[in-house]
């Protein structure tokens, strides 16, 4: 029978995720001879990421493309993907997201979140932007950093001595302008789109963690699908997850080049993790207790 999947995202219609989510609908429709289709709900029309996760659980929403950060609260293993300085370039980030180790983490999702994870994608690497110049890691102490609320990200900034301040994306620009926050943890795409450099003119190209996306299907909905439809959905989603990753890898250098063109924005390129002292050791020590995947991911990247 015909079925239209409802897919929710937090990103606006022009974002790469949304373009690929719409393309997923077309692919699915072709593969199923028009039997399956996708209706996308962009810009958090259906609520925040945590609200969408709750709607996946009740089955109100069929699918959602959420940040991996959102899932870390319920799946500690997912925190390993946010390990600081796991990879130093976006191409390696793509390899991490396509690895068997990362895929294993998805097995934890049904029990812990009531959802099925189909594949990963990303929205690039995260960088640091500050209002004041940073000459040494000590300068970060006491700075109020806007972060995405997720335990692994929070502990990274706490270990730097900064004061992590979770804040929805909608308030970040004004938060910088009115001094509620001194600095942000952000990806190239968002920096360009929102113009955060107006009020935070110092950027450190740290690539300090990769910012992943996970394509989720409601567990309730998944249970009702035939094996054939499950396979179709899995394959089509994988295709567009991969295309999303490829696009971010291909465009990352161009985005940095565009940021360099901006007057008044100082960029410190290629920051060495050593600048931040023994943060990696400390973070790993704390998180290795919570999940074996921290070590698995480090070993994986060492093998690249």
């Amino acid at each position: 029978q015909e079925r239209e999947f409802r897919l929710g995202l937090i990103t606006p219609p022009v974002h790469v995720w949304n373009e690929e989510a719409r393309a997923l609908g077309e692919t699915l429709s072709e593969m199923s001879d028009g039997r399956l289709s996708v209706a996308t709900f962009p810009s958090g029309q259906l609520g925040s990421e945590s609200a969408m996760l709750q709607q996946l659980q009740t089955g109100a929403l069929d699918m959602a493309w959420l940040t991996t950060a959102e899932v870390t609260t319920r799946v500690p293993d997912m925190s390993a993907l946010h390990a600081p300085f796991l990879v130093d370039n976006i191409a390696d980030a793509a390899r991490v997201l396509r690895s068997d180790e990362a895929r294993e983490i998805l097995d934890k999702l049904p029990r812990a979140t009531g959802t099925v994870g189909l594949c990963y994608a990303m929205t690039g690497m995260r960088q640091l932007m500050t209002k004041e110049p940073v000459d040494s890691a000590e300068d970060l102490a006491g700075m109020r950093f806007r972060i995405t609320p997720a335990p692994p990200i929070k502990s990274f900034f706490e270990m730097l001595g900064a004061a992590p301040a979770p804040m929805p994306l909608t308030q970040v620009y004004d938060g910088l302008a009115n001094g509620q926050i001194d600095a942000i943890d952000m990806d190239h795409e968002s920096i360009i789109n929102f113009g955060y450099h107006d009020h935070a003119s110092h950027m450190m190209e740290t690539n300090h963690h990769l910012f992943g996306m996970v394509a989720l299907v409601s567990g309730r909905v998944w249970a009702q699908l035939s094996d054939e439809d499950k396979a179709l959905l899995q394959e089509a989603s994988q295709t567009h997850c991969d295309q999303t990753i490829d696009r971010f890898v291909a465009e990352e250098d161009g985005k940095l080049a565009a940021l360099k063109e901006i007057d008044g924005l100082t960029i410190s390129e290629d920051m060495d993790p050593a600048f931040f002292g023994d943060i990696v050791t400390r973070w790993d020590a704390e998180w290795a207790e919570q999940t074996p995947y921290v070590q698995k991911m480090r070993d994986l990247v060492a093998s690249f």
């Binding site: 022009v14 909608t170 620009y173 004004d174 789109n193 929102f194 113009g195």
Partner: peptide, 17 residues
Amino acid sequence: PSIVFVVYAVLAQLAVR
């Protein structure tokens, strides 16, 4: 400042300013 405009800027991916 207007919260309504800020929300619109975010929805439309425009600079809030």
